[in-house]
Design a protein around this nucleic acid. Structure first.
Lengths: 146, 146
DNA sequence: GTAGATAACTTGCAAAATGAAAGTGAGTTT
DNA sequence: AAACTCACTTTCATTTTGCAAGTTATCTAC
């Protein structure tokens, strides 16, 4: 059923990078440090497109570039990704931004609407840093409003 | 990061079957109709165990059987699975229980605590049918409480 | 108590998917 | 027009998967 599209190592990572980092182009995915091979990347982008999750739109200013963008169906994966992020932060001690992510648990709905707003407005700034900067304050304010 | 465990076709399906169908044993997974090969199943069960997501406990009454059970870390995947289920129901027209699942969206927290209760109490009855029977009524009652 | 199931795996091997590296071709900069 | 960038293809070695057929330890029936 619905797990079929994500039964591989890369597809969800691509969706995540589109959603919370500001990735748009083939090059950005390729050099993102995860080390995906270009043939696999091309294949996954094509399959995600076929599944109606992303949509390629050529850039006007530069005819070589293609901007991949999440569809509505794609952005609707935000809750899944967020829950997975929270789960990972809770159970895998590794990451540095763990405590930050765990705070997200309390503001799930707020973050989800922020993610969707960014998508609607084509805001490509990475999500995490913006939260890192402004969100800590705001979280503090809403929780124990001095 | 946290996506590594689920970067394959079977692991999430196994977790799902443990969580919402009442699967416990190797045999049940093997004959579940999804068609997983026994070598792959053995491998995935081992990897899920290594990741601390499931835990094998031999059955007392039958020394051949091993009951695989989700750990706390495993059951904490419930929100992810539920969101994925809802996403699938919303965007993949295929399944019959779609409308049922979509109703779950409104009772997310209730369902999640039900899933965890079943886990704690080792209630192995499949989740969906029980909802199919009793939940429709209950959903109706809480929403437009006549 | 032994013959035959049953459960949980292994093993062997062919087919498919993946990864690394090098190429291609259209579009852009200088 | 030469060099460069971007989004792919192609090739080929390696890895992973899927299928079928064991294997071992435990039951169950006679």
């Amino acid at each position: 059923m619905c797990l079929e599209v994500f039964g591989d190592r890369w597809s969800l990572l691509i969706v995540r990078d589109l959603m919370v980092r500001g990735y748009r182009t083939f090059k950005e995915f390729q050099t993102s440090g995860e080390g995906i091979a270009t043939n696999i990347l091309a294949d996954r982008l094509q399959k995600l497109e076929a599944a109606g999750i992303i949509n390629p739109e050529p850039e006007e200013t530069d005819g070589r570039k293609i901007n991949y963008r999440l569809t509505q169906k794609g952005i609707d994966l935000a809750p899944v990704l967020l829950d997975l992020l929270i789960w990972g932060a809770r159970h895998e001690p590794a990451d540095a931004s763990c405590s930050l992510i765990l705070k997200m648990d309390k503001n799930r709905d707020q973050i989800l609407s922020e993610v969707e707003r960014r998508w609607r407005e084509r805001d490509s700034t990475p999500l995490i840093p913006s939260f890192d900067a402004g969100m800590a304050r705001q979280l503090g304010r809403t929780q124990r409003h001095k």
